[in-house]
């Protein structure tokens, strides 16, 4: 990566200070959606301060890692005419925050050795927990990007990014410990979770994932409509609305 881009990205993030949490810089593009929505949510229509979703990084320390995962997530679930993509939906924050928590440590899974490769029917048998797999996977994405295109992953064109991801999906970019296909599967399912999990987990910004899917969220009851033949459009509701 050229020194200049590197510096400007870092400088930009540094310059915005505490607000860095709201900014997802990917290839130099500021994702206004999540940032703006997050800022809005902190004030109600009368300008009164309410409790808003202050998003921030809890796991990734190096911005390149965060940008890489952001850009990969965006290619898996891109912004299009249907609505926002992974970045605007704040999926990267969802992933980051989850990796910092029990999910990242495989807290409720059996992690004791000894470790053997095993058959596919026996499931994941590696010694690494998810936070390790993600960091290795991100490093491998950048390695593959640099081998092919002499740039870090976030600086590739969309079609170059897709090429790299396809190599991973096919399991052809093996890195130590797990197959790249397995990492890709993990990444894809984490992205979908970030798009559609309740916004209390920092993704699915403003319930936009649910709105696109015409899913009403955490409603209390459908007794009134269960027999209706016509599709019911119901304004979505989050667990946060119940607090």
């Amino acid at each position: 990566m050229p020194e200049k881009t590197d510096l400007s990205r870092r400088g930009f993030l540094k310059g915005t200070g505490a607000a860095a949490g709201f900014i997802i810089a990917g290839g130099g593009i500021l994702a206004a959606g999540a940032a703006g929505a997050a800022a809005d949510a902190a004030h109600d229509s009368n300008g009164e301060k309410t409790c808003g979703p202050f998003r921030g990084r809890m796991f990734f320390t190096d911005s390149l890692e965060f940008q890489t995962i952001s850009e990969a997530a965006e290619r898996i679930f891109p912004k299009d005419k249907n609505g926002p993509g992974a970045i605007e939906l704040a999926v990267p924050y969802f992933i980051d925050n989850q990796l910092a928590a029990g999910f990242g440590y495989n807290a409720r899974e059996y992690t004791m050795g000894p470790y053997y490769k095993g058959a596919p029917t026996q499931g994941y048998q590696g010694a690494m927990v998810r936070r390790d797999v993600f960091r290795r996977g991100i490093a491998a994405l950048n390695r593959e990007a640099n081998t092919r295109y002499k740039s870090d992953f976030p600086d590739l064109t969309d079609s170059q990014k897709d090429d790299v991801l396809r190599v991973f999906e096919a399991g052809k970019a093996d890195f130590d410990g797990v197959s790249s296909a397995w990492f890709f599967g993990l990444l894809k399912s984490a992205v979908l979770a970030g798009v559609y999990a309740d916004p209390i987990y920092s993704g699915n910004n403003d319930m936009q994932g649910w709105i696109m899917k015409r899913y009403p969220g955490a409603q209390m009851s459908y007794k009134a409509i269960i027999k209706d033949a016509e599709f019911q459009e119901i304004e979505p509701m989050s667990l946060a609305d119940m607090q």
Binding site: N106, R108, E109, Y110, M112, Y116, G118, Q122, G123, Y124
Partner: peptide, 28 residues
């Protein structure tokens, strides 16, 4: 994430398809 279900960090089962295989833990 199976919030109400068995905590496999405490206990799980091992599995193999047949007697010739090494049984390995169901980690998740």
């Amino acid at each position: 994430n199976y919030g109400l279900m068995q905590d496999l960090s405490k206990e799980t089962v091992t599995f193999r398809n047949d007697r010739s295989m090494k049984a390995l833990p169901m980690r998740r």
